[in-house]
Design a protein around this nucleic acid. Structure first.
Length: 287
DNA sequence: TTCTTTGTTCCGGA
DNA sequence: GTCCGGAACAAAGA
């Protein structure tokens, strides 16, 4: 479930390990990701140098000399680094899922620094798309995205301006990538818990303080998650098995019937479905 | 066999 | 035209 923090953790570790490296070979085991990878894909990437790796929302962007490689990890996509010499796999992703099976390795990208990028994706809902650099500003996936939650312009002023005359519930608003871009189900659930706001509340009747607090909590939890994921990938000399520890900080996500973690609260976490998505909250302290 | 998981897209109704 | 929510979709594991 890669959301913004996980993608950012992957970006940072990739940047550290492979920035300025050159692509020397590509092998594809399965072209059928969310969008079928064209036959021309490999040829057009050979000899391209990785100049920069950036992130927009949950998208990873590889900046090459004249091309842009856009990657979305879908729901189970992972980018791993493999050392060519001994076939040891080193984690680049935050994943607490240590059960990575090589039968789901779909793409291998061999670099001139002795490392191989491996794309592993059980569900195959992720995708790789290649563009010319000159088309960058016209990439549909990126064009329609709302602002970054960690940016300064994601503030109460922005919130109030966009929420005017809208009735959508607050959970769906935060999930809406055209409003704010990068949050998924887990962090939305967690941020609403921290803010003591029930997910079904209409977005236009939150008080100004509630909005301020919610925005602050979103930024806080994203930064915290990034810092935790970062710590799990700091030493690439360790083998497989090392994993992010985000899940141990979940307060509501996947905590159905568990006692509310607020000391002052006697409630139990409830699970409901909002727009076909599992939603976890404490009915006692989230009002 | 059915249910669950995800982000995204599409569609019908208000 | 806009907003909203529900359904569909991709694949695989429990």
């Amino acid at each position: 479930m890669p959301e913004l923090p996980e993608v950012e953790v992957v970006r940072r570790s990739l940047f550290q390990m492979i920035n300025k490296a050159k692509i020397i070979a590509i092998k594809i085991n399965n072209r059928n990701l969310r969008y079928k990878i064209p036959k021309t894909f490999c040829k057009s990437l050979i000899n391209e140098k990785i100049l920069k790796i950036s992130r927009r929302s949950k998208y990873l962007i590889f900046h090459l000399k004249k091309k842009i490689l856009l990657i979305h990890l879908g729901m189970s996509g992972k980018l791993l680094l493999l050392r060519n010499r001994d076939n040891a796999i080193f984690k680049t992703s935050f994943y607490y899922d240590t059960n990575i099976k090589s039968k789901h390795n779909h793409i291998y990208i061999k670099l001139n620094n002795g490392l191989v990028i491996v794309y592993n994706d059980v569900r195959r809902f992720g995708f790789f798309k290649l563009y010319k650099t000159v088309q960058f500003k016209h990439i549909t996936f990126l064009k329609k995205l709302g602002i970054e939650p960690l940016s300064k312009i994601f503030n109460v002023h922005y919130f109030e301006k966009l929420v005017q005359n809208r009735k959508k519930n607050i959970k769906n608003l935060l999930m809406d990538q055209t409003f704010v871009s990068g949050l998924g189900n887990i962090y939305v659930n967690e941020a609403l818990f921290l803010s003591k706001i029930a997910p079904i509340r209409s977005c236009n009747n939150l008080s100004k303080n509630e909005k301020k607090n919610l925005i602050l909590n979103i930024k806080k939890i994203l930064k915290f998650a990034i810092s935790k994921g970062g710590s799990s990938v700091k030493d690439f000399k360790d083998t497989l098995g090392e994993s992010g520890k985000f899940q141990q900080f979940f307060r509501v996500y996947d905590k159905k019937n568990k006692k509310c973690s607020r000391i002052s609260c006697k409630g139990r976490i409830k699970k409901i479905i909002i727009s076909n998505r599992s939603t976890f909250y404490c009915p006692s302290c989230q009002i």
